[in-house]
C-alpha cells in the first residue's frame, strides 16, 4: 500500500482532492477572519453556507446559468450578514448565541426553501474546470493546481488579496483598530459600527460563496445538510490561522490534505478501523497547533459589542 501511496498518480490524486476540499474552508474562513478582525465573531457560518448553497443551486437550476446562481448566493450572503449585524452589532447581542441562532435559521431556511421550490434531488452543469494556459500544461503541478473551476482559483487568490487589504491598506488598519481598540477607533472618528457591519457582510458573502461552491463547483447538486459541519470547521480554522490569511491558508490546506490522504489510504486498503482515518484531520489539526509556537494573539475586543456610550 505504501508503494501505491508514493506513486505519482496517487500523489497527484491526493493533492487535487485536497485543493478541492480546501476551497470551501478557505472561502468561509477568510470571510470569518474579517468578521473577527473587526471584533465580531460569527458562529453561524454553517447556516450562511447552507443558504448560499441552496440559493446558488436553485437560481442556477432555474436560470440555467451558474453565474447568475453565484450572484444570487452573494446576495443571500449580504442579507445574512446584515441580519447578523443587526442582532450582534446594533442590538449588541451575545455573539455566541446569535451565531447559533443564525446557524439554525440558515440551515432550516435552506431546507425549507428547497422543499417548496424544488423538492427532489436533481443536478446541474455547475462550473466546469478551466485549464490555465501554459501553467496547466506543467506536468503534475498543472493537474494539481491549474485545472480547477474559477471558484477554486478565486478562493486561493483571496489569500494574498485579503492579506493586502488587511495589512497594506488604510481600510485594513481601520478594521484592525476596530477589533483591537474600538474606543481608539471611535476617538479617531472612525465608525466602528460601519466597519463591523461591512466586515460581517464580507464574511457572510464569503461563507455564502463557500456554500455555493459545494453546489455549483463541487457536487453540482443540492441535498439536505450538504454543508455537513464545514462552517464550524471554517470557524476553527480562523483560530488555527491566527487571524492571518496565510495562516488560514495553511490550516485549510493542512486539514484538507489529511482528509484527502485518509480517503486515499482507505481506498488503497486500510488495515485499521476506518473511523480512525476519518478522525485523522481533526486530531492532527489540534496536534499541529499544540506543536506550533505558543505565542498567540487575537483581536482584543473580539466578541465585545461596541457601544459609544460605554457600558
Amino acid at each position: 500500500m505504501i508503494n501505491q501511496l508514493l506513486e505519482f498518480s496517487t500523489i497527484i490524486g491526493i493533492l487535487t482532492t485536497a485543493i478541492r476540499l480546501a476551497t470551501p474552508f478557505l472561502l468561509a474562513a477568510l470571510g470569518e477572519m474579517f468578521d473577527q478582525r473587526a471584533g465580531v465573531y460569527n458562529l453561524g457560518v454553517e447556516g450562511v453556507m447552507m443558504l448560499g448553497a441552496f440559493i446558488g443551486f436553485w437560481v442556477s437550476l432555474r436560470t440555467g446559468s451558474s453565474y447568475i446562481g453565484i450572484l444570487a448566493a452573494i446576495f443571500a450572503g449580504v442579507l445574512m450578514g446584515l441580519l447578523m449585524g443587526l442582532v450582534s452589532i446594533t442590538l449588541q447581542a451575545e455573539q455566541g448565541i446569535s451565531g447559533i441562532g443564525l446557524f439554525m435559521f440558515g440551515v432550516g431556511l435552506a431546507g425549507y426553501l428547497f422543499r417548496i421550490t424544488i423538492g427532489y434531488i436533481t443536478n446541474i452543469e455547475g462550473f466546469q474546470p478551466i485549464k490555465i494556459p501554459i501553467l496547466g500544461d506543467i506536468p503534475i503541478l498543472g493537474t494539481v493546481f491549474f485545472n480547477h473551476n474559477w471558484m477554486v482559483y478565486f478562493a486561493f487568490l483571496m489569500v494574498p488579496i485579503s492579506w493586502f487589504i488587511l495589512f497594506k491598506t488604510t481600510w485594513g488598519l481601520k478594521i484592525r483598530t476596530a477589533g483591537m481598540t474600538p474606543e481608539a477607533a471611535d476617538t479617531l472618528g472612525l465608525s466602528v459600527v460601519a466597519i463591523r457591519y461591512t466586515c460581517l457582510v464580507i464574511g457572510s458573502v464569503a461563507a455564502a460563496m463557500a456554500g455555493a461552491f459545494l453546489t455549483l463547483g463541487h457536487t453540482n447538486m443540492y441535498a439536505d445538510n450538504i454543508s455537513a459541519g464545514r462552517g464550524f470547521i471554517a470557524v476553527a480554522l480562523v483560530y488555527f490561522g491566527r487571524w492571518n490569511p496565510w495562516g488560514i491558508l495553511g490550516g485549510a490546506l493542512f486539514f484538507s490534505f489529511v482528509d484527502a490522504l485518509q480517503l486515499w489510504v482507505q481506498v488503497l486498503g486500510l488495515k485499521i478501523p476506518y473511523e480512525f482515518a476519518v478522525m485523522a484531520p481533526y486530531v492532527l489539526t489540534i496536534l499541529a497547533l499544540v506543536l506550533a509556537a505558543r505565542r498567540i494573539w487575537e483581536p482584543a475586543a473580539l466578541g465585545k459589542p461596541f457601544n459609544r456610550e460605554g457600558d
Binding site: 459545494l214 463541487h218 457536487t219 441535498a223 445538510n225 450538504i226 455537513a228 480517503l263 482507505q266 486500510l270
Partner: peptide, 19 residues
Amino acid sequence: VAYTGSFGDIAKASELAKA
C-alpha cells in the same frame, strides 16, 4: 471498501468516489 463516516455528507461521498 472505504467509508465517509457520515450518512449525509454528499460532498465527502463525491470526493471519495473521485478518489
